[in-house]
Amino acid sequence: MRVLKALFVRDAFLKIREPWSFLAAFVVFNVVVIAFWKHVRFTFVGSNLLEVCAELNVAFLVYMFLLCGLTALRSGGRKVFSIPVLFFPYVLTPIYAVILTWLRLPKALSFTIAFLHSILLSSEHDILILSARIATYGVLLMVVRHWV
């Protein structure tokens, strides 16, 4: 219940600093992959989809641990457990995609909405972490922009 509250209340979002959030971020990532499975399948045509799913999970974990390492270097180890919480708004990405489809807008915008939702909730001020997130978001958009 605290996670649902954290999706919409900034103070509740900033209070989550627990180790279970790593598992929750992993689950959120897999929910997004499953929601967009048709697009993922067409993006990686001719390859083993289980391998692709495993590679995507490894890439996500490397990215998350990179952000955790940057956070530990910049602001201390205690704040590291709040990094996986940044991925919680992405669980709403499939819902955003359905709403955008109803409005006849591109589905790729659902990732933009989730990214902005995450940025607004986290209020991250460290320029290094913010630039790493923006760069990764740019790479993600290069992949999902042809899903339109």
Rank of each mutant, 00 (worst) to 15 (best):
I16D: 06
L14K: 14
I34L: 15
S75L: 02
S118G: 13
V139A: 15
L7M: 10
E124P: 01
C68N: 04
W37T: 11
L128A: 14
F36W: 03
R17Q: 11
S82W: 00
L23S: 08
N48L: 06
R17M: 03
W37L: 14
H117G: 09
V58E: 12
F8N: 05
F26L: 12
L140W: 13
V143M: 14
P106Q: 02
S122N: 09
S110A: 15
M64Q: 11
F81A: 09
L7P: 01
F8E: 04
R133A: 04
I16P: 06
A24C: 10
M64G: 07
H146Q: 14
A24T: 05
F111S: 06
D126W: 08
L66R: 00
D126G: 02
V80G: 05
V144M: 00
I83C: 00
H125A: 14
S122I: 02
E18Y: 02
L56T: 00
P89N: 05
L128T: 08
G76H: 07
L130H: 04
A12Y: 02
L61H: 07
F22L: 12
F111H: 01
A24V: 15
F115E: 02
T93K: 00
P89C: 01
R2E: 12
F26V: 05
V85Y: 09
R74M: 03
K79T: 15
K107H: 08
D11M: 00
L128V: 13
R104Y: 03
V85W: 01
E18I: 03
L92I: 13
M142C: 15
N30Q: 10
H125M: 11
H125P: 01
Y63A: 11
I34C: 02
T43L: 13
C68P: 03
W147G: 10
R41Y: 13
V40Y: 06
V144P: 04
S122H: 12
S123L: 08
F65N: 00
P19E: 00
I134Y: 11
L66T: 13
T101H: 05
L116C: 11
Y63C: 12
T101I: 08
F60N: 06
F65M: 11
D11F: 02
C68Q: 11
A54V: 15
A35R: 04
P94K: 02
L61N: 07
A72G: 11
V40H: 02
M1N: 10
A24M: 14
V9W: 07
I134F: 15
V80F: 02
F8A: 09
F65L: 14
L109Y: 15
K5E: 09
V143D: 05
V62S: 07
L128K: 09
Y63W: 13
M142W: 08
I16L: 15
I83W: 07
P94Q: 09
A59D: 09
L141S: 05
R17S: 15
A108G: 07
Y96A: 08
R2N: 10
L100E: 05
D126A: 00
V32I: 10
F115H: 15
L140M: 14
Y63D: 03
L100V: 00
I113E: 06
V32E: 00
L130S: 04
A59E: 10
A35E: 08
L92E: 08
K79F: 13
V98D: 06
F115Y: 13
E55S: 11
R17T: 03
I83K: 06
P19Y: 10
S123A: 12
S21Q: 02
H125S: 14
F26G: 10
V33K: 04
V139W: 10
E18F: 03
K5V: 12
A97E: 01
P94V: 04
F8G: 04
